[in-house]
Design a protein around this nucleic acid. Sequence first.
DNA 1: ACATTAACTGTTA
DNA 2: TAACAGTTAATGT
Length: 198
Amino acid sequence: MIIEEQLLLSVGSELKSYTEGEVIFSEGGSPLFYYQIVKGSVRLCNRMQDGKEFIQIMIHGGQCFGETFLFSEARYTLDAIALETSLIYKLPKNQFFMILHEHPELHLRLQESLSDKLYYQYIMMANNTKRNPAERILSLLNYLKDKEGNTLPFEYKVSLTRQQLANLTGLSVETIIRTIKVLEDKELLKIRAGKIFF
DNA sequence: ACATTAACTGTTA
DNA sequence: TAACAGTTAATGT
């Protein structure tokens, strides 16, 4: 959790419910709020004119998003869309800076959260540029498993759909399916009832 | 709703 | 040019 709920409420944050697929903010819009997820998850993505999308990062409960845009004059360069029904705190920009001013220790937490996101972005940028599909998928799975703190083989259950894996790696769903099967043959992962165990 | 397969096309090593 | 990845479309769970 980045900012305590009590504190968020005391400065007039709005607790808003979003349904699956609902757009929270979109590319080109003016960043006016700080968002923090209570329950659910959100994807930050770029949508192409042909309807395809590339997921930059997924944000889960306790984490915040959109905050980086409050520190610059830039407009949103991506969309934030609810991955599922989610409860999210929405705090106006000026109130956000007010509590940052009154609670300087929050800077450290925001910095840590930002570093985590950047770490993921670095990994994904390196992976999605040159590597082959198997390497792209494996490094994404490695990152996800690592984040969960799981070290045992085939213990980590990948909760993402094939489509989500495709949108995170820039590969097609079919390539994900084909490659996942090759990786299963090589015994680098297991598939049980359609779910990937890594 | 999500996963899989097949047939086909274009690209790349 | 053979292998590979995306597209399309049909089918399966």
